[in-house]
Amino acid sequence: MVFFGEGTESGASGTEAGAVLRARGLTKVYHMGSVDVHALRSVNLELYRGEFVVLLGPSGSGKSTLLNILGGLDVPTSGTVYFFDHDLTTADDRELTRFRREHMGFVFQFYNLIPSLTARENVALVTEISDHPLDPDDSLRLVGLGERLDHFPSQLSGGEQQRVPIARAISKRPDVLLCDEPASPSPPPGGSCRFPNGLSRASTRSTSGGDCTSRRDGGMRFS
C-alpha cells in the first residue's frame, strides 16, 4: 500500500496523530451459512496525508474488504477505524453516509455508471451533493474526456467508460480516494495512458489515495 502526495504539508510526518485513516486490530468475519470466513484478521494500518499506497495481494486476501471498511461502506466485526479523531466503528448509518459524502472518493472495480445519464451528468450526480466540487467538465477534461461530455455510457468505448468513474471520484475533491482495481477489467496499454495524468493532477490537490490491485507487477506504471 502506498500513500501518495506532495509531501509538503503534514505528509510523511510519521506521527500517529497526523494519520488521516488509522485502523487498529481490524477483523472482519463473514458468516457463510455454518462456516465463518475470516476476511481480515487483526489489521493495523495508518494512512497519511499526501501518501499514495498500492495494496497488493492474491484474490480473496481481503483487499476489497479492507477498502470497504476504510471507506465507511462496511463495518468491521471488531477493531477500530479512525478518520482523524472520528471513530468510524461507532458511527451509525446516517453518520457514515455523511462521512462518505464529505470525505471519500471511490473508483470501483466495475464502472457502475448510470446508463441513462451522459458522462457529464454521471459526474454531476456526485458533485451535486458535494461542498467544494470541481466543475464536472473540468474533471472530465482531466481524464481526457473533454470531447465526450454529452455522450451516454453506451456511446463510449470501454476505455472511456473506465475513465468516467475516475472523473466522478476526483470531481468531488475527496480527502481520501480509494480505488478498487480501477483498471482491472481492461488495462490500458502500458505507458501512455492519460488517466494517470488525471490522478496525479488530482492528487496535487492534497488527496490521499489508496489503490488495491492483485497484479503482482504493481499494476500500472505511472508516468
Partner: peptide, 14 residues
C-alpha cells in the same frame, strides 16, 4: 443494485 450502491458510496442517503 450496483448503481444504487455507487450513489450510496458517494453519500446519497437512504
Amino acid at each position: 443494485r450496483e448503481q444504487i450502491a455507487v450513489l450510496k458510496a458517494f453519500g446519497y442517503g437512504n
